[in-house]
Amino acid sequence: MRKKELRIYSTFTDRWATQGFLFMLPALFFVTLFIVVPVFLNVFLAFTNYKGFGVPYRFIGLMNFQSLVTDASFWLVLGNTFRLLLIYVVVLNVVAIFLAILIVDVGARFGNFVKALLYFPCLLAPIVVGFVWRLILNYNRGLVNSTLRSFGLDGLAQNWLGEPALIIPIISLVIVWFATGYYTIIYYAGVMAISPEYYEVATLEGANGIQKFRYVTLPMLAPAITINVVLSTMGVLGAYDLPTAISAGGGPGYHGTTLALLVIRYVYDTYQEGKALAVAVIMSLIAVVLAYFELKILIKREEH
């Protein structure tokens, strides 16, 4: 059926093959000049002693990568990046699924209100959110500590943003606070799309709430979960604005720094362009892995 349709159709649009390519040119121009060329240029430059525009440079082999892997802070940052990915992606998706189910459950009126409210933080600039939480978690004057102190719980008041062990979990959770609305709305659409008949059958079979969730909701949400996991991983891998705003550029030390921040720190703080280029190559390798999954999902979605 579909094949036949295509054949009839192609007689009409065959003559547009050349023109179709012309129609793609503007998009291709921007994407080639500002994404494709830079990706390859970056890999090339990573093997040179490039120091900035206009300065002559030469081939130095793997030296940039060598100085990167012998730098202890790089391994710390790599660990931070994976910790951020793990905490953020797991917490975000669990919370968003849970909220989506609750929003469907409580009905349209209250549900819509919560949905709009949850989406609200997504509108703010990430650096605004970062600054706000930096103030809230401030040791001397922040809302969290002043509340704890006013209840006489001075002992619990922490230097939240100064603790090396706490900073990555805090950054992850603040990004969750920021992004939950977006993912909740996607899951909400997924939950709404599940036919009520499945739940009716489950009820007839005597399933309780948890069993319904386990055997109906979760399997039906599987495609949405895959998409959201890939989307959220991609989103947080390059996240710069919010983490840098909350951790004052990746502190304390390198404990609040991820790969996304490390590139900028190397370029603008320590002037080590070579190491920055090497980090960028590593990030592109991670991006290739993500792109593979992304392509599988998107193409599959297309076929439906």
Binding site: A27, V36, V37, L41, G238, L277, A287
Partner: peptide, 26 residues
């Protein structure tokens, strides 16, 4: 065109940091 489309989709996942230094140069 289909091939170009797939390449375009692949580029969705490129973080800006990967291309940043080259962009400054360009």
């Amino acid at each position: 065109l289909k091939t170009l489309y797939i390449i375009l989709i692949l580029l969705i996942s490129v973080p800006f940091q990967v291309i940043m230094i080259s962009i400054i140069q360009i």
